[in-house]
């Protein structure tokens, strides 16, 4: 058995069922600890017929090959599959970090029932007074810009390490406002390594489809543009908006142009996550940070990866 696969038996008794979706169930895994993963873990078991074929191994292995600093950042910003879990030699699921408490909102539902709700990105798109009425936060414009900035950082981290997010959508990332970082990508199933096939079929969530049919880092950038647009113009039908002029008055400086580029039909013309990150930094601090590129490189620690055409192994880009 390789270092990135564990046996289901080795997990010990599973804890509470935390969630169930169309393709998988997620359980607490209170008896598992891993030296390379901070905090508690959960076990995501794919339903019969939804177990991903190989490809998952590669996504798990990809994380383990990152240098420690980058891996720490990845673990803060995503619920990355940290180990594949197998039973009788077949991959049945993955271990992931438990989403930290800070991404949940204690609220009271309209019927009066108390609830603990994940602060999904979708909650940023509805009218602030409605969000408050539903017991969710209504961030200020400055806080929204901060969330945009932090999502840009997540996208940039994944892109510069050769990943394609694929299905960036209003449910698979969560935010918090109290402490940094503010955004965490919670469903990494659709992520693939650039140049390889996706673990599960990469799909477009409704209303998030890019003009082109193939999902790539460029389509991630298109979807990021839609997120910026919708997050900064909350209200009725913001969740399906595509008209960049909605936020002309909200985005200072270069923002309106960056957004139009992000939503360009030409995949090559789209604003990169790094450019967005710099833009939001400047917008939020009012200070141009020329050393940003260097600082970013230091934090991520690696300049990217590519497949060696001969060996098919991942090698650092030099």
């Amino acid at each position: 058995m390789s270092a990135h696969v564990v046996d289901l038996d080795a997990l010990g008794p599973l804890g509470a069922l935390l969630g169930a979706g169309g393709q998988a169930k997620v359980y607490h895994a209170p008896h598992v600890t891993l030296a390379d993963v901070p905090g508690p873990l959960v076990y995501k078991q794919y339903k019969a017929g939804h177990a991903p074929p190989h490809g998952l191994d590669a996504v798990v292995a990809r994380r383990l090959r990152l240098d420690e600093r980058t891996r720490e950042r990845l673990d803060l910003m995503t619920a990355w599959p940290v180990r594949a879990v197998q039973e009788d030699g077949e991959v049945r699921g993955v271990l992931m970090r438990l989403i930290p408490d800070g991404y949940f909102q204690d609220r009271v539902k309209p019927s009066g029932v108390p609830a603990r709700t994940l602060r999904e990105l979708q909650h940023l798109f509805i009218a602030p007074e409605r969000a408050v009425r539903l017991g969710m936060p209504a961030p200020s414009t400055a806080e929204r810009l901060l969330v945009c900035r932090d999502l840009a950082v997540v996208v940039h981290l994944l892109h510069r390490n050769g990943m394609v997010i694929g299905d960036l959508n209003p449910k698979n990332a969560v935010f918090r406002l109290a402490a940094r970082p503010c955004v965490m990508l919670v469903d990494c199933d659709a992520i693939r390594i650039k140049g390889a096939a996706a673990v599960v079929r990469q799909l477009n969530a409704p209303d998030w489809n890019p003009p082109e049919s193939v999902l790539s880092q460029s389509s991630d950038l298109y979807k990021f543009g839609l997120f910026v647009l919708r997050c900064l113009s909350p209200g009725p039908f913001a969740s399906i908006a595509r008209d960049p002029s909605r936020v002309d008055a909200v985005l200072p400086g270069d923002g309106p142009r960056l957004l139009r580029d992000a939503l360009s039909r030409d995949p090559g013309a789209r604003t990169t996550a790094q450019t967005w990150g710099r833009y939001f930094d400047v917008t939020l601090t009012g200070v141009v940070a020329p050393e940003q590129g260097t600082r970013e490189a230091e934090r991520t620690g690696t300049s990217g990866w590519r497949r060696d055409p001969q060996t098919r192994r991942w090698v650092p880009v030099t």
């Binding site: 539902k109 709700t117 909650h123 409605r130 009725p236 969740s239």
Partner: peptide, 9 residues
Amino acid sequence: LSDAPILSD
């Protein structure tokens, strides 16, 4: 719906 409020769109 309050858990999935963009469905109001």
